[in-house]
């Protein structure tokens, strides 16, 4: 057996938007003992096809298993590991921080440094919204923790490959669905 090196991988899966499909995906993760760090899912640009981004940690064998086992699910149309490609990866967080007259200014400075924004204010708290790569979100949270985080929600990461889809690296749902070639099988 080769020495195992575990790394985080960002993987995009295109799913048919059918009832129970998310159940199939998460059930597979748990049954196969896959280690998933984050998962987000929502509509793609094509009706009927959802797009899921997830981050999985493991060695080469683990990741190959994640991809091939997921691809075997009938409702998974396509899957791509974009870790090696130039990508834009973003996560969004909403963070409610306790404030007082003294701390509000300091917090606003941090918000500005992190290109975050304040989306709600009252006398004792602020809701801060940040859209950034995961490590920057982590870093802001760590700083805000000093003031007392009352509530927090994170979306998990979403990813998109840079550049035009027409230059070969096409990960558009339309292309993916068309290349599925399961359409119109005479059976």
């Amino acid at each position: 057996m080769t020495a195992t090196q575990t790394k985080s991988h960002t993987i995009i899966a295109w799913l048919e938007d059918k009832p129970g499909v998310l159940n199939r995906v998460t059930g597979l993760f748990s049954r196969r003992n896959f280690n998933i760090e984050s998962l987000t899912v929502g509509h793609s640009e094509v009706k009927g096809i959802s797009r899921m981004t997830f981050v999985a940690r493991g060695d080469e064998r683990d990741l190959q298993q994640v991809e091939t086992q997921l691809d075997k699910l009938i409702n998974v149309v396509h899957i791509a590991d974009v870790s090696q490609e130039p990508t834009v990866v973003r996560e969004m967080a909403l963070i409610k921080v306790a404030t007082s007259g003294q701390t509000r200014g300091e917090i606003m400075q941090l918000v500005s440094i992190y290109h975050a924004s304040v989306v709600d204010v009252d006398m004792t708290s602020l809701i801060i919204q940040i859209v950034a790569p995961e490590d920057r979100v982590d870093s802001l949270i760590k700083l805000l923790d000093n003031y007392g985080i009352e509530e927090m929600v994170r979306t998990g990461q979403v990813a998109m490959v840079r550049g035009s889809s027409r230059h070969g690296h096409s990960h558009s749902a339309a292309t993916v669905a068309a290349n599925g070639n399961g359409n119109g099988h005479h059976a």
Partner: peptide, 12 residues
């Protein structure tokens, strides 16, 4: 139906 529509299934 004469055909199936399963874009995610490639049993070739």
């Amino acid at each position: 139906p004469a055909t199936v529509n399963l874009p995610g299934y490639r049993p070739n």
